[in-house]
């Protein structure tokens, strides 16, 4: 069970940074959840949250939900012992803006997210594939199916 965060603290920080259309809710399992309508505002929102005391970006990952890529960032304040999850939606092939300026921990995770879901990456110091070779499909998209060794042999 995630520990919830004070909504007014988050709202004030996001408002001061000019991040509009951010919806703050309490998720029963994930704790406090911030959903950004505009994925381009992610770096600004994360910079604002870092200034508000969230020292660490713990986790960065994506998921293919209903034909869109859902990028999730899990932040933590060690001093307050609270977590907040920030989430945004991107279309297939959209461009993800890197958050490495505020949180360097996303350096490898963002590369993995983009290659696994077929996104492009801007603002990253080394926007290169991480795990797979060039030409490999975005594996974690639902449209990319699993094939057995026999199926591969039959097709070739």
């Amino acid at each position: 069970m995630m520990i919830r965060t004070d909504h007014t603290l988050l709202q004030t920080a996001l408002d001061a940074a000019g991040v509009s259309a951010a919806e703050i809710t309490d998720h029963p399992q994930l704790g406090t959840l911030v959903v950004l309508a505009d994925s381009g505002m992610t770096p600004t929102a994360l910079a604002a949250l870092k200034a508000a005391g969230f020292e660490q970006l713990i986790d960065t990952f994506g998921a293919d939900i209903d034909g869109q890529v859902q990028a999730t960032y899990r932040l933590r304040s060690l001093s307050l012992n609270v977590d907040v999850t920030l989430r945004t939606q991107l279309d297939y092939g959209a461009t993800l803006r890197s958050v490495t300026d505020s949180y360097a921990s996303a350096l490898l995770a963002e590369r993995e997210l983009c290659e696994m879901f077929g996104l492009t990456l801007t603002g990253h110091p080394n926007p290169k594939r991480l795990l797979t070779i060039d030409g490999a499909p975005p594996f974690l998209r639902k449209e990319v199916g699993l094939r057995t060794k026999e199926e591969l042999w039959q097709n070739s």
Binding site: L121, P125, N126, R129
Partner: peptide, 21 residues
């Protein structure tokens, strides 16, 4: 030029080898 995740598939300008911050 292989494996770049940039929109045009080319490395960004001004980076060095090895590409680290």
């Amino acid at each position: 030029n292989a494996g770049w995740l940039t929109p045009d598939g080319t490395p960004p300008a001004g980076i060095t080898v090895p590409r680290n911050i």
